[in-house]
């Protein structure tokens, strides 16, 4: 069962990654990248990394890809390749949603024998405990990195006063 799930998720991830690389339209490419990330979230669940799987969906497939789509639509660079109809966009959106829901619910069914790792492996509690004890300094430095990124993004993207 676990092997079957791995092959299904892995095959899906590779196929959607190929779609990302070969697709002419940036929006469709972004949608296939979201699909790749959802498949990878399923593989993380197979590997007992529950917190990472949730973060993968929330941060990567959610926040970062929305930023990408926002910029693609802001710049409107897909004019040459022809526009997608609203119906096609809706279909893509629904199919990603359905596939993601199926993947998450199916991977939740898998039971991995307790002999392999401790029960708390990869849970929010265990990872959080490491993050706030052994890795406290890197964690705090990450917040400075994010602050620098916010300031940098604002300075780079704002319109100059003199033009």
């Amino acid at each position: 069962m676990q092997l079957l799930m791995f092959y299904l998720l892995g095959f899906g991830a590779v196929v959607s990654a190929l779609l990302l690389v070969t697709n002419k339209r940036p929006v469709a490419a972004a949608m296939s990248l979201i699909l790749t990330m959802l498949f990878l979230a399923g593989i993380y669940v197979l590997l007992d990394a529950h917190l990472i799987a949730a973060l993968q969906i929330i941060v990567y497939a959610g926040a970062i890809m929305v930023l990408f789509l926002f910029v693609i639509m802001l710049l409107n660079v897909e004019e040459k390749a022809g526009r997608l109809s609203n119906r096609k966009i809706a279909l893509q959106f629904i199919s990603i949603l359905v596939v993601g829901a199926i993947l998450i619910s199916v991977t939740g069914l898998i039971k991995i024998g307790p002999s392999q790792v401790v029960d708390s492996f990869g849970t929010t509690k265990a990872v959080g405990q490491m993050l706030f004890t052994d890795f406290l300094l890197p964690f705090e430095i990450a917040s400075i990195l994010l602050l620098a990124a916010i300031v940098g993004a604002v300075i780079l993207a704002k319109r100059r006063i003199d033009d």
């Binding site: 993968q56 930023l67 910029v71 990450a142």
Partner: peptide, 16 residues
């Protein structure tokens, strides 16, 4: 993931 988020924000600002 933190670095990727920071990179996406700055990189997309550069592209804009």
């Amino acid at each position: 993931m933190t670095v990727a988020a920071a990179e996406a924000a700055v990189g997309l600002a550069i592209i804009i």
